[in-house]
Amino acid sequence: MIYRNVMRYAGGRYLWVALLLVASSFVLYFSQGGVQPPNGGTWQGYVLGTVAALLIVWLAWLGIRKRRYAGGSGTVQGWTSAHIYLGTAVLLLATLHCALQFGWNVHTLSYVLMCGVIFSGFYGLYQYLTQPQLLARNRAGEARAGLFAELYDMDGEARRLAARCSPAVGLAVKSGVERTMLGGGMGAQLLQRDGSRFMQAGSGEAAATLLPNADQQPLVDFVAARIPRAAKRSEARNLQDLLAILVRRQSLLRQLRRDIALQGWLRVWLYVHVPMTIALIVALIVHIVTTFIYW
């Protein structure tokens, strides 16, 4: 096997490391008892807490290792694989450390932030394992730049053909091309919202109106509706050609919009995962310091 995903890196080496860690944590946890019930204050609790805190720092270090391009040990894939398995283990370690004692305090805040980081990580992992295939399938072997280049050609072609049609069609298509929207804010990108518009000429003295053109379908319908009503054969042919271009354009825009959305989903979770990690580290410092102050 030349390619293995992060879960199977080195035959799942870090899965075994994580399992070993969890197993020994359980042993440690159940060795508690006697005078004190299991909690963070027993020596076992301290050990679990220290290991978990060190692990969190190490997990966060991935952000630095990833950017050490020339040096750094191992491969980033190896680090990522370990990051996932050991990160999952931290969830158990910390839970055993606190022995399920929660309250409205900074200690539980750390715990909650940690859960946020870990679960956003799970979501990211799910994205990393599933989205690339969807992305590749959607692009069908073409690069995004290639799709844009083709769209640009189609735009030119549509304008050229529209110029030969009636002024109403000309205006609709020209404005439709100019007011096509891709991307936008984060929500628009992720949810593939389409704010495209086109302009329809008013009849007689009436002013032109701007109509929504989501997914380009209204414009396609507009042109298609004119084909059976064409007065001349040459006009019908021009409209047919134009329609073919508009439909191709529509499909390209769908591909691009989906590509942008999929790429977005692959990235957006990091905007939760990373800031929350920083918050977690701050909370963790406060947790440790207060623990020692009130000892």
Binding site: N5, V6, K66, Y69, G72, Q77, W79, T80
Partner: peptide
């Protein structure tokens, strides 16, 4: 570069070989 091609070593998902 010590450790081999940077592009491969820097790939987080193991896609680049």
């Amino acid at each position: 570069v010590k450790g081999g091609p940077a592009c491969v070593r820097a790939c987080p998902t193991g896609a680049a070989k």
